[in-house]
Every structure is written in C-alpha cells, then in structure tokens.
Amino acid sequence: MTQEPIPDEDDLRLNRVGASYELQFAVHLRDKGMEQAISMGAWLVASLLALNGGGALAVLNTVDRLAQPTVPASIFIAGIMFALVNAAGIQWSGYAQLKPMSEMIGYWITVADDGVRTAAFEDQLKAKVRPLIIRGKLASAAGWISALLFLAGCVCFATNFEPTRVKNNSMAGAAHDEAVPVHKDH
C-alpha cells in the first residue's frame, strides 16, 4: 500500500473549502433527499396497491361474466405482490443508506477541519454505496413490474368478457335488464 503524499498548505486549504461544500451536500442529501425519496416511494407503492387491488376487485365483481376470471385476477394479485416487494425494497434501501451517509458526513467534517483527504477511505465509502444503488434499482424494477402487471391485467380483463347482450323485460311497469348470452349461430 502506497502512502499518500503530504499535502501542502494550499492543498489543505482547498480540501477544507471543498469538504465544506461536500458536507453541506451530504447533509442536504441525508435530510431532504431521503425524505423526498421515502415520501415519493410511499406514494408510488400506495398507487400500485390501489391500482392492482382495484383491478382484482373489478374481477371479483364481474366473475360471472368472465370466461376465465382466474387469469386477470392472478395478474392483479401478482401486481400487488410486486408492489409489496417494491415497498420492502424502498424501506430497506432507506435504512441501509443511513450508515454510509453518516460515515460520509463524519469524514467530510474531519476533512473540513484538518484538510487531509484519504483516498483509500473515499474508495471504501464508494464501495459500500455501490451495492446499495444496485439494490435500489432492483426495488425500482419491482415497481415497474407491478405497473406493467396492472396494464396486462387490464388488457386481460377487458378481453376476457363473454359476449352478452342486454334484454329489456317489462314486468308490472318496471324495466329489468337481463344479460343473455349471444350465440354466434343467431
């Protein structure tokens, strides 16, 4: 392992100035960025659960008119499951980022004080964050899959209705609608 060169006074001063900006950014990212990401994630998960849950309820409400109700219902239920995976991934990702974020803030406080940067520590910090970014992308992918399953469920639901026609019967002055299957030989 090679030893880092000892910085001169100008380098130390520049490091201190740069560290103060990095520190401000890291604190802002921790406070506002994480808050916004969690808030947006909660909104996204709630929307995905509502969409897929509504699709599943629509299937239940029209089960007698569908040729194969289990197909769209299964797609919507899979969408709910992927939305829950997305929620767990967002929550895990937020908590997992707290430790490296705290280490980064502590590091930049030290550099802002003494001006000495340590490339090896910065590389270790980047190495800790890299897998978290990949895992965050996997959580995001689960959200996209949930949204695509909702769309697929809608298409399957819409194309799964048995052909019917509405027949109007009058009984004692009241109109009653009755669904009658349409046969292709008529």
Rank of each mutant, 00 (worst) to 15 (best):
I90G: 08
V27R: 11
G94P: 02
P163G: 03
G18I: 02
I80A: 07
K128C: 10
T62F: 01
G54R: 04
L98R: 15
K167F: 13
E4I: 03
I77M: 03
V166I: 13
C154Q: 10
G18N: 11
G33M: 09
F150V: 02
L49F: 02
P7N: 00
V116K: 12
L49Y: 01
P5V: 03
D64Q: 14
V116Y: 01
I38P: 00
L149A: 08
A174M: 14
C154H: 03
G33H: 05
L60V: 13
R135N: 11
N168V: 15
P72L: 05
E35C: 05
I38V: 13
I133M: 14
N86H: 14
A67F: 02
K167Y: 09
F157H: 12
I133K: 15
M104G: 04
A46D: 05
T62P: 06
G41Q: 01
G79K: 07
S93L: 07
P100F: 00
A147Y: 04
G143W: 05
V129P: 08
P181F: 09
Q3H: 10
W92T: 01
M40N: 12
L29P: 07
A175R: 09
M171I: 14
N168L: 14
A56G: 01
A87I: 00
A179K: 11
I109D: 06
I90Q: 03
D177E: 10
L57T: 10
A119S: 14
L23S: 07
